[in-house]
Design a protein around this nucleic acid. Structure first.
Lengths: 193, 193
DNA sequence: TTTCAATCGTTATGTTGGATAACCGTTATA
DNA sequence: TATAACGGTTATCCAACATAACGATTGAAA
């Protein structure tokens, strides 16, 4: 076997979703290691074993699902989650420099350039002269940008409500502190160069 | 302004981390829209506004932090989160085909090829002939693969304990159901071609 | 049994989020 | 005033993930 060898090693990040298979020709050799999870006839396909006990695993899956929902919701505005976060920070902090805004979101300033370019080309963000420092730009939302944000915030709230409907307002509220605590695991910080 | 124009539009996904700035030349123009969050002198830099109320936002940040911790923990084994999940599923379901395993994890079979190649080259996984079907391969962990998994599972458990230490066993337990519910938002499924 | 559709693994290729290195103009500091 | 630090930018590179298409094989229909 192994006609393989391929080209690049290529790592895949995890990704996961449930799927059922109505197959018949299953369990070719269910011997070897096997002691975890219960049955898996036609429910959720293969046995994920201890993965179901790894918070990081389901956290990742949940994050993907949430993004998928948000992406779909913002699709008609051609806005992605990361873009929404950038516009929101600019909206909340008008006049700050690219570096500051990028840092606030953990985005490398080098990758932030193209983002701002796109926003500027779409007439959503304005790069103004930073008074007192000719090196930096002061970022502002244009009127069009502000108008878009009003719509986006509404969409985001509906999106949030969809989540609340799933887990209940209490759990929704509780999650924040827990997730915030987890987010602080890596001692935070980890920005630009 | 806008010497910009750059090359590719390039979207950035979100990413975020807190950072503090001890600057002095701040608040260039804190007028415009501004009504959310409180002070942000030197604490957590800029105001994230409503982002702090978006579960998806902190969920994403938490997921990144968890992965960072797990990645660091598995670094000496040269294993990434996605690889751990693949090996785990193969371990739990020996003898299944590439397509089945890939599907179980939401990985496109096309991208799965290189992954299995890498595992095979490292002597962790074996592609065996699938009895009764010369099209597919039956995947198995080699002895080396099983040995590695024993170590990885231990590392993963320690990693999990680190999370529990942060949010407490009760919250840790509660999170699973909530996250599972969220993960099911997109009606699950969303695999291969 | 011949034919055609579906499957499995594979290659080639494109896209996006994200990381590094290096550079220029500007500002701050020794 | 020399020099280090900073802000924005470009050029690159990598990893995760997606699509199209193909050969070999198998299954189902005629």
């Amino acid at each position: 076997m192994s006609k393989a060898s391929s080209s690049s090693p290529s790592r895949i990040e995890l990704v996961a979703t449930d799927r059922r298979l109505t197959d018949s020709n299953m369990k070719p050799a269910t011997r070897g290691t096997k002691e975890h999870a219960p049955a898996n006839s036609q429910a959720s396909q293969l046995d994920h074993g201890p993965l179901g006990e790894r918070l990081g695993y389901i956290l990742r899956r949940a994050q993907l699902a949430i993004f998928e929902d948000f992406i779909a919701a913002c699709d008609r505005f051609d806005i992605r989650p990361g873009q929404y976060s950038v516009l929101t920070v600019i909206e909340q902090n008008p006049g700050f420099s690219q570096t500051k805004v990028a840092e606030a979101l953990g985005i490398k300033k080098t990758n932030f350039v193209a983002m701002v370019d796109a926003f500027e080309n779409r007439g959503l963000v304005r790069r103004a002269a930073m008074p007192g420092d000719r090196r930096s730009y002061a970022l502002f939302l244009t009127d069009a940008g502000k108008a878009l944000m009003r719509k986006l915030h509404r969409v985001a709230e509906q999106h949030e409500q969809r989540i609340i409907d799933r887990i209940g307002p209490l759990m929704h509220k509780r999650m924040f502190s827990a997730l915030a605590a987890i987010a602080g695991m890596s001692g935070d910080t980890k920005q630009d160069d």
